[in-house]
Design a protein around this nucleic acid. Structure first.
Lengths: 122, 122
DNA sequence: CATTCATATGAATATATGCTCACTTGTTGA
DNA sequence: TCAACAAGTGAGCATATATTCATATGAATG
């Protein structure tokens, strides 16, 4: 009905067509943007950050993680499923227990990089 | 420290006290975990990812960003406020327009690192 | 001035997300 | 076979968050 013209998109005067065209051409593919948002989103939660950091220090079972974080094993298990699905952690079953380890070197580097950011901003 | 015993925290048999104690000692301070989650959370949204990527290609006004993303300038403005508050972008006023640029080198590196992850995962 | 326009912002709404609770699964050992 | 227990999961709830809509602000221009 309204067609492509959206009054909230200021298509009147301010648009720098050259710049816009150039940037449009270099923009990330949708999959890439989606993928980036997904991985960063996974790292963007306090509980998951702490789980991943704990695992970066060594292998732990669900119970241990719960104890370290002071969270219920249910909450931890829910989060571990997300991390497992995204292949950020790997699980190894041993009897009743399931041990988790980091399964992605990029995560370590992202952590280090992120920490630099956190520490250096002032 | 943990207060009352929580049945969901399996304090019975599986706990590897030595590991837990060691990891607890090396855990991130709360502020650090919170800070990490915050920065990653900001990067964990498709719209913000695309805004930041567009800005990594050069300075753009709000209107241009809207055009590049195909989003309303209102939506973009809201997101820019978050990014500005977190000092990930910087704004420069010129007449009616406001130009934005990336204001954080870490972001570029996080992007590169994140992209590697996205591209390399099987 | 009054108008137009780029940007910002508050309120409302829709959706996403994290946790708890109750329950299930699968394993160990009595 | 049965009880105990670690772990996983679905439902429900509470909160967070992204977008839209309406409106405000402030700058250029007639």
């Amino acid at each position: 009905m309204n067609g492509p013209t959206n009054p909230d998109m200021c298509e009147k005067q301010c648009l720098h067509q050259d710049r816009v065209d150039r940037v449009r051409g270099d923009m990330l593919a949708d999959v890439a943007a989606e993928g980036l948002a997904e991985i960063f989103g996974l790292l963007g939660d306090r509980t998951r950050v702490r789980i991943l950091h704990a695992l970066s220090l060594g292998e732990l079972c669900v119970c241990d993680i719960s104890a370290v974080l002071g969270a219920t094993s249910s909450a931890v298990s829910h989060q571990l499923r997300l991390l497992r699905t995204a292949k950020l952690v790997r699980s190894r079953k041993q009897g009743k227990m399931v041990f988790y380890t980091l399964d992605d070197e990029h995560v370590r580097q992202l952590f280090a990089q992120g920490l630099e950011h956190v520490l250096e901003r002032r």
